[in-house]
Design a protein around this nucleic acid. Sequence first.
DNA 1: CGTTGTGAACTCATTCACAGCT
DNA 2: AGCTGTGAATGAGTTCACAACG
Lengths: 225, 225
Amino acid sequence: MDDAVNERRGPDTDAAKLSRATVRRLSQYLRSLGSSDRAGGTVSSLDLARSVGVSAAQVRRDLAALGHLGQRGIGYDAAALATAIRRTLGIDRTWRAVLVGVGNLARALLRYRGFHDQGFFIVGLFDADPAKIGQTIDGLTVESSASIPIRVAELQAELGILTVPSEHAQPVAESLIAGGVKGILNFAPVLLRTPDRVRVVAVDLAIQLEQLAFRVQHADPGPDL
Amino acid sequence: MDDAVNERRGPDTDAAKLSRATVRRLSQYLRSLGSSDRAGGTVSSLDLARSVGVSAAQVRRDLAALGHLGQRGIGYDAAALATAIRRTLGIDRTWRAVLVGVGNLARALLRYRGFHDQGFFIVGLFDADPAKIGQTIDGLTVESSASIPIRVAELQAELGILTVPSEHAQPVAESLIAGGVKGILNFAPVLLRTPDRVRVVAVDLAIQLEQLAFRVQHADPGPDL
DNA sequence: CGTTGTGAACTCATTCACAGCT
DNA sequence: AGCTGTGAATGAGTTCACAACG
């Protein structure tokens, strides 16, 4: 652990080893850095800890994993830290994504500023409903789900966002994979079976509400978020 | 650990002790039980494990925490298990929620079947935009955000769902709390400061996409979901 | 048999506490 | 003085492996 990390694009500080939880917090630190645009240019682990709701030791442990970014006695350079986190997360570039299932949720995601702010661009829209095909939303024309494999490849999309009803999720996922996507953000409450090379992140909104109900019910203490 | 658990509404098997992770999985087991309505009436830990994407030992450990629900050599009675999970999660009753910030995301949540299926009812809609106030959506009239404290109390809502821009999240949360909500589902990417008695669950959609980017970038192995 | 429930081992994650640099 | 980086201690969560039971 004593490797002088001088290269700007070096051996990546072994980012693949970061825990799931650490990676999630990195996103949060990044959000905090972006919003409270500190003129001074430096943040302390305690600053970040407070704005994200974790301990300062946790922040230091997380950031130490990215390399030697802090200055003892001073703190972290906000801009450099943001850059390092972006690089680690893999969002120091743009990602092209397609969205399948054009309902209200899809519309919400399309307009969600947080996405293009972080370099995610929706480049294609698909739906199985003939009534929706051909409609234009935010400059994109809704195409038939049948054309997903070909069009995803043409559009060079690496990510797919699934906002279709549960029963269509698996087949649509398969056509996205046939088109070459490497990752799927799945809003349908089902487990997708995918090849190992394709990563899936699931967001189940009903589950979130159930978690909330549980905690209210039992007045569970512990950190928010 | 030998207490005969005979009462139907007994000491609740100390549900408050369940870990965050266990509670999340309980929701998933419940989802799986609901969809694959097994006629036979029994499920094994392996069945559940496969449909949710965890190990069978994990399932047994989780379910054992709810009491002695399984029959050795047989499995779990699906209906009884679903009932026990619902009771533990606190969704063996209905919950009244209000929604603040009437954008596309709110519309998506309003129509989301998963919510009323699990006993969550949206009973009020609020927005700060005068152009939206007075509109009717799904039988609910959008009211002014200014009226939140009074109206939330009148409506007897226990939960609030926040789909407002980040900068309004904190003040709106405070007015919800003034109205008496005990839990908030927050879609704004900021940490809410709330009294200890008010529970918060945060859902940050941009963070989910960033997690996906990270995993695709590093071809991270490990379980999906 | 088949399947649960669970002690014990193990792995992963967080906090403590302080040496080390600025 | 202030704040990071990190070994050591602790705690949480998961898997192993098997006895217990229908």
